[in-house]
Computed example of a mutant assay.
Amino acid sequence: MSLTKSQSRTAKLLSLSHSQVSRIMHRSVSRGLERRDKSDIYPHLSIDEKATKKGHHYLSILSDERAGVVIEVVSGRTKKSVDDLCVKLSQKQRKSVKTVCTDMWDAYIYGANKYFKEAKLCHDNFHLVGYLNKAVDKVRKREVKTNDALKKSKYLFLKDKMNFTNKQYIAFEAISNANYEVSRAWRVKENFRDIAFRQNRLDALAIYSFWRLDAQRANIKEMNEVVEMFDRHQNGIVNAIETGASNARAERLNSSIQEIKTIARGYRNDDNFRVAILFFHGNLDMYP
């Protein structure tokens, strides 16, 4: 099984049917979860989502941010789903959690506040910059309708400048030096991305407040909407700046989980997808 993440290929290699491989994986994961030490401590947790093949359907994933290990997976991303996810940890384990990193999805915030009352809820930089990137692209789409110079510039504002070709750098400099709103919006986004995390509490609050004031001065409708959203979640953002908590490992896990999904060409059954995720990324003792 360690040779490939493709169940079909594994079945062929072992002269088994696909259903037999699936049953082995299910039994192995069940055995591994039963053997897990309920006294294990997870100081830094992440709650993230993964889209399945079924349109706007998701799995919710609880992972150990420090070790990059999936703790549990449940179907959906409702409050009920989050209840099912968080109760997998014992009361003692929940009390030991110091930070819980999520995006701004209401159900995840609800779960963090309900089950990890002694932990700091953090909204990590990856998701926050993602919101700002979307806002920058909205500004570009609006302005490109009246400014031909912005045509074919989408990826200039989404790509890291460090990865620009010489041609892209020249094009970007020409646009950024002009007084386009998209250029000012990009600078607001970059200023946030450059915030140094791991600050004391007062500095974290001051840094966020300074960025917020600068963003408001730009007075760009799409960016103002993101600032308003950030303000509603200010405590979680300041917590992240203070603690440095992020979903970095969770995002890398998400990429690995996407690989499992791609190899399988999607999963129609959530439980099979859950088992595959835990089989490969649950760090379980599954041997008979």
Rank of each mutant, 00 (worst) to 15 (best):
D148W: 08
T262F: 05
S153G: 11
A178K: 14
L205E: 14
K152I: 07
K80N: 11
A178M: 12
D285Y: 01
E222Y: 01
Y110H: 04
T78L: 09
D137R: 05
I260C: 11
S19M: 08
Q168M: 13
R268C: 12
R142L: 11
L13K: 04
S8Q: 06
N224K: 02
R23P: 00
G236H: 03
R36G: 03
A67H: 11
L202F: 12
Y208R: 02
S246I: 08
A135W: 02
A240L: 07
K98P: 00
E190Y: 03
K120C: 09
D37A: 09
N113K: 15
Y267S: 11
R31P: 00
L253M: 03
N177T: 15
Y42V: 13
Y208A: 10
A250R: 00
S176G: 01
L121R: 03
A248R: 08
S96T: 04
Q234C: 09
M223C: 10
K261D: 02
I195D: 03
L45M: 04
K54F: 05
Y287A: 13
S153W: 09
R187A: 10
D83T: 06
K145H: 06
R252I: 09
N200G: 04
R142M: 09
A245N: 01
N163Y: 08
D103L: 15
D231V: 15
E228Y: 03
T262A: 11
R66N: 11
S28E: 06
Q216G: 03
V21E: 02
Y155Q: 07
I109E: 04
W105H: 15
S209L: 12
E72I: 07
Y267W: 09
Y108E: 04
S2P: 01
L13R: 04
K95V: 09
K53E: 05
Y42T: 12
V182K: 00
E173L: 15
Y58D: 05
N125R: 14
E173Q: 15
A196S: 13
F197S: 05
R36D: 01
V188A: 10
V29L: 06
P43I: 14
D124G: 12
V97G: 08
N272S: 13
E143C: 09
H18I: 13
E72S: 15
F230P: 01
A264G: 05
K167P: 02
G244K: 04
S255P: 00
S2T: 10
S30Q: 04
T102A: 14
V275M: 13
Y110Q: 06
Y169D: 14
S19G: 08
N166P: 06
D64R: 10
S90W: 02
V136N: 00
A119P: 03
D148V: 15
L150D: 05
V226Y: 01
L3F: 06
R274V: 11
K161R: 13
Y180M: 08
T243S: 14
N254F: 01
L16R: 04
K12L: 15
D214G: 01
L132A: 14
D106G: 10
M162I: 13
R77S: 11
S63D: 04
G76R: 07
S63A: 14
L16F: 08
K98Q: 10
Q91W: 04
H123N: 07
Y267D: 08
G130N: 08
S2R: 06
L14G: 05
S6W: 00
